[in-house]
Computed example of a mutant assay.
Amino acid sequence: MLNPLIDEIFELILTKQVWQVHTLAAQLSHQGAIATLDQSPERDLFKRNFLIMNALYQLQAQLKPQNLIISTLHIELLEKEIKHLLVTSNNLRDYYLDWNNYDTSEQQVEELLNSFWRRFKVTPKQHALTNKKYNELILKWDLPEDFTLKALQKRWRQLALQNHPDKLNGCAEKFKKIKLQYEQLKTAAR
C-alpha cells in the first residue's frame, strides 16, 4: 500500500537538512496532513510514528537507499551518495513496511514503549540497585512489586510536587534524593 504521507514528507525533507520523527510529526500535524488517528494517546503516537517511518522507508526505496538516512533522531536527505553509510536494521525497516503492524493493541504499544525506554536508558553503575535496596524503595514509594513505568512516573510526579524546592515545604536535598531513587527504579520498571 502506498503511504499518502510520502509526498508531504519528501517536500519537508527538501526544505531542511536534518529532521527527527517527532519534528516531522509536529510539522505534518501543523500542516493538517496528519490528524488524530486513535482515541488512546499512546496508540495515536504509535500510529503517527508508524505512518511516518513507513513513508520514510517507502521513500528510501524509491530514492537511492544511500541518499536517505533514517533513524528516529536523525533523518537526512543527502545530496551525494555515501558508499560506506551505516545501514539501518533490516528488521526495523521490515517492521515498518508491514502494514499488519499498524493496528497494534494498546498493551503491545505500552510494551514497545517500555522496551524502548529500557533499552535507551543506561543507568550508571553508581545508580544500580541491590535486591534489598530495590525492595526498600518499592515499599517507600508505595509501589506494587510488578509496577509499570507509567505507575512509577505517576508516583514520581506526586513525590516531586510534594518535595520540590520551590514549594512551601519543599527541600532541595530531599528532592535530589527522590530524583536519584526515581532514576534507579526506572531501570526496573516493566
Rank of each mutant, 00 (worst) to 15 (best):
N100G: 04
E136T: 06
D103S: 02
K176A: 14
K174E: 09
A128H: 08
N169S: 08
Y102T: 00
W156C: 11
D103N: 02
F116V: 06
K176H: 12
N131H: 05
S115T: 08
N163L: 04
T123C: 11
H164S: 09
V87S: 12
Q181D: 15
F116E: 11
L161G: 01
T104Q: 01
T104I: 09
E111A: 13
K179C: 13
I75Y: 04
E81A: 13
L73A: 10
W156E: 05
L86I: 12
E136W: 05
S89I: 11
A160C: 14
L63F: 04
L78R: 13
E173V: 15
K154I: 12
W117A: 05
N67C: 07
D146F: 00
E110C: 04
Q107N: 02
K154G: 07
S71Q: 12
R157D: 15
F116H: 04
P144I: 15
N91F: 15
F147H: 09
K140I: 00
E173A: 13
D98V: 00
N100D: 04
K179Q: 15
E79N: 11
L63I: 02
D142W: 01
P165L: 01
E145H: 12
L180N: 15
S115I: 00
W141C: 05
Y96S: 05
L112I: 05
K80I: 03
K140C: 01
A151P: 00
S71F: 06
Q62A: 10
A160M: 06
F147N: 07
F147T: 11
L77H: 01
